[in-house]
Design a protein around this nucleic acid. Structure first.
Lengths: 140, 140
DNA sequence: CATACTGCGTCTTCATTGAAAGCATAGAAC
DNA sequence: GTTCTATGCTTTCAATGAAGACGCAGTATG
């Protein structure tokens, strides 16, 4: 399961992407509209800024802005930033690989299955962006 | 990521399925061979027993046995037993569903994506069994 | 029957981390 | 220089993952 942190990050990014005009958006506004604890949200947005996804402006009229186009922000990227590995096992992780002890990956059946799961998940998460989840699109 | 508990459960089940003769297998033997903390393993195996996956025999010559054919034990079942939901969000979980607040699932883009991920993952995890991961099969 | 063997139950601990809250600082606009 | 807003730092609190200690219960073997 995704942590609250990741879920909040997605909610916040969706909210920001749904605004018509690209004006700086207050942390407090997102917090209120999406019922996310204010200080927790601050940390999340800050982390997204440090990762180059968001930008911020201080002072009056300040707030958060997208640093990248929402259509270029992959869901997988956000998840890795917040929660770490997407894979179910360390030994099948692309970005956070660590070898498991007592296990030759070439012969480990579990490894092979989890690779499949990873690939299936990433095929989706690497191709969907914030724009995709923000759209008030038609229900099919 | 899967918890240690789930990983240990898989390792133990693989080890048991790999034994030629179906004799009762000692907790201590699995613990030693797979370097799994003994008491932690006890709990895991016990839980698998209560779920009807394993059976046990006490006393001399005792140990753990399969209650079901390893080919009938789905990976998804083991994961749900140990870790709970396989889905990334509560609102897309089949077995552990809970509604998310401030979110109409019919209009939530995140919900739709996570449904896809869930379906892709389950397509694999519901169809792979302990037999599949235990096989010393040929590498392709 | 006795003893060794092996699983079962309960309780406790310990570290990590998820999930916040408080308070003080820095920077920008007016 | 005052107000608005983000940033930094510290602390807390609860939950849970990950064990370890100790003792009980049931079964085989001689």
């Amino acid at each position: 399961m995704l942590s609250m942190k990741t879920q909040y990050a997605f909610k916040a990014l969706m909210y920001m992407a749904q605004q018509d005009k690209q004006r700086p958006i207050l942390i407090a506004e997102i917090s209120e509209q999406k019922t996310i604890p204010l200080k927790f949200l601050e940390n999340i947005l800050l982390q997204l800024k440090k990762a180059g996804i968001l930008d911020s402006k201080k002072g009056k009229g300040g707030g958060y802005l997208f640093a990248k186009n929402p259509g270029e922000i992959k869901l997988a990227t956000v998840m890795r930033l917040m929660d770490g590995p997407i894979s179910l096992l360390p030994c099948v992780s692309l970005h956070f690989y660590t070898k498991c002890k007592n296990c030759d990956e070439n012969y480990c059946g579990l490894n092979r299955v989890m690779l499949q799961v990873r690939d299936a998940s990433l095929a989706i998460l690497e191709n969907k962006t914030v724009t995709d989840i923000a759209g008030n699109s038609i229900i099919l």
